[in-house]
């Protein structure tokens, strides 16, 4: 197993008290596999991703418990120096806002070749060659001249591709893509995702794909993990999840997106209510105030994540026997 996350909890110390941004999250990821993490804003998906690279800023954030095994090593036990050798080298992250995530006053070339210089001890000249090769690989036209340009001279889609090139620089075993296609138009989205899917097949790269777009997940992920209020509410192989969603929240998410095979007359059903205040979560199951099936027990007790069939886990009282 390439990545094994076990009962991960991440807390933030805020003025209102301790915010449990991620609580008791476990998952596995094998080489060449893609895991989709889906949820509303603030459900803990980005925090989970950042914690894999140990990039949670402390203070205010702290990894309160759990284990993250990557290539057999517990990342939470490594020194900062050892962690630096993993970041950008064996595990890379693609951030969601290429506008702000790229350095505004450094040239694109310098930013893309930096991981090579840091990790592969590449000399400048070979690094420049590698950098051109990388930019060509993500299909930046005129890569050999454009690497002298600055991010503001690139279009949004090209900036995102530069981010990807930067992530690919050292051929990482795991790429974490945090909403990589937000703000891109649909054709660019498809192109980028196809490219990353290609990587998982040819390079056996594992991919953590964070998104709130269930459509993307359906096409590109092998496994899907639905998060709500910092916890996993459902985890299943992609086909299984779309065929038979078990958690009311998953069902609600799927009912709220339009489908081609649906009658046009049928209205979309949004999930009632608002996402919860993370500093002040509802008692019991955090979803109960919005859940159409809520029972008294849901208000009192937190349902545990239970396996209902092979690889399909749900945290809901409806499914516990």
């Amino acid at each position: 197993m390439l990545l094994h996350v076990n009962q991960l909890s991440i807390h933030f110390h805020a003025r209102q008290g301790i915010v449990k941004a991620v609580e008791d999250v476990s998952f596995d990821l094998a080489e060449g596999e893609t895991l989709g993490i889906v949820g509303e804003s603030g459900c803990g998906k980005t925090v989970t991703a950042l914690s894999l690279l140990r990039l949670i800023s402390n203070p205010p954030g702290i990894i309160a418990g759990g284990e993250i095994f990557f290539q057999g090593r517990n990342l939470l036990k490594l020194s900062e120096k050892e962690m630096c050798d993993i970041r950008g080298n064996h595990m890379a992250m693609i951030f969601q806002e290429p506008m702000t995530a790229l350095h505004p006053v450094l040239t694109v070339g310098r930013q893309v070749r930096e991981p090579l210089i840091v990790h592969k001890k590449a000399v400048r000249k070979t690094a420049v060659q590698d950098c051109i090769r990388l930019l060509k690989r993500v299909r930046i036209p005129d890569a050999d001249t454009r690497l002298h340009d600055y991010p503001h001279q690139f279009s949004g889609g090209m900036r995102q591709r530069v981010m990807v090139a930067m992530g690919l620089a050292c051929n990482p075993k795991l790429i974490i893509a945090d909403e990589p296609t937000t703000g891109l138009d649909v054709t660019l989205q498809a192109e980028l995702l196809e490219f990353m899917k290609g990587l998982t097949q040819t390079e056996k790269t594992a991919l953590v794909l964070i998104t709130h777009d269930l459509g993307i997940v359906a096409c590109y992920a092998d496994q899907v993990m639905i998060m709500y209020a910092g916890r996993i509410v459902e985890k299943a192989p992609t086909l299984e999840l779309y065929r038979a969603p078990q958690h009311p929240y998953t069902q609600g998410l799927l009912a709220s997106i339009p489908r081609l095979d649906q009658d046009i007359q049928q209205k979309l059903r949004p999930i009632e209510g608002q996402p919860p205040d993370m500093a002040n979560l509802p008692s019991g199951c955090a979803f109960h105030p919005r859940c159409p099936h809520a029972k008294p027990r849901c208000m009192r007790e937190l349902p545990k994540l239970m396996q209902i069939s092979t690889g399909h886990d749900v945290a809901c009282w409806m499914h516990s026997r």
Binding site: K81, C84, A92, F95, E97, H119, M166
Partner: peptide, 21 residues
């Protein structure tokens, strides 16, 4: 800024992030 986080994500040490980015 986000681009500082990006620099850390590349595996740069804190000192290098400070001086170069």
């Amino acid at each position: 800024q986000d681009y500082i986080r990006t620099a850390f994500a590349k595996g740069l040490r804190a000192k290098a992030v400070l001086l170069r980015h």
